[in-house]
């Protein structure tokens, strides 16, 4: 630092030549400070409001949880009743037709086991859908999937039976032409 710099730094106070308009500036500062401060704090400083807010929060939470528990239980009851009806209907249909296939003398053991393995696959799928149903994930879609699972089984059985009948018919026709 040279002499010039030292001289200025030592006499820096001489550069303060202006006087601030104190009252005018303070008026604006205090106005800003007043506007900002009381906004948030006093609400939470009042114990009554604090209790009220806590109560409101508790009520809200209780209501929400209650609705979740109660509402969902009614829904699952309703859904499982519907499911039970569908289940009963299709189960009897499927088991009847499975019996038909099993008792059919025109089917080889190989065909029967192949058919039953298909049925097992669909059974497994059905079990998974039931678990899904318990988890309450979009009931309607799971229900639809269960129905389509049953329909596939019935279609499978019907196709099989049609095949058996067709082959019978073919045999008869063949016999006729001869």
């Amino acid at each position: 630092m040279d002499n010039f710099e030292k001289h200025i730094r030592e006499n820096a106070s001489e550069f303060d030549e202006h006087k601030a308009d104190r009252s005018k500036m303070w008026a604006k500062i205090s106005q800003e400070l007043e506007v900002q401060e009381p906004k948030v704090i006093p609400l939470w400083k009042s114990p009554m409001l604090r209790i009220a807010a806590s109560l409101l929060l508790l009520l809200g939470l209780a209501g929400f949880i209650g609705k979740q528990v109660f509402g969902s239980s009614v829904e699952t009851q309703y859904a499982s009743k519907e499911l039970l009806d569908i289940d009963m209907h299709y189960k009897s249909l499927v088991s009847y037709q499975v019996k038909l296939v099993q008792n059919n003398p025109n089917l080889s053991n190989e065909d029967k086991t192949e058919f039953l393995s298909f049925m097992d696959e669909l059974d497994a799928e059905y079990e998974q859908l039931r678990i899904e149903m318990q988890n309450n994930l979009d009931n309607e879609r799971v229900l639809e999937a269960i129905v389509s699972n049953y329909k596939q089984r019935i279609e499978l059985i019907e196709n099989l039976l049609k095949q058996i009948n067709n082959s019978k018919l073919n045999d008869d026709d063949y016999g006729y032409t001869l």
Binding site: D16, A20, M25, W26, S30
Partner: peptide, 15 residues
């Protein structure tokens, strides 16, 4: 106290 502190420093800051 805010005003007291303001008075002490306002001129220097203004300059």
């Amino acid at each position: 106290s805010q005003y007291e502190l303001y008075e002490l420093y306002v001129d220097a800051m203004y300059n």
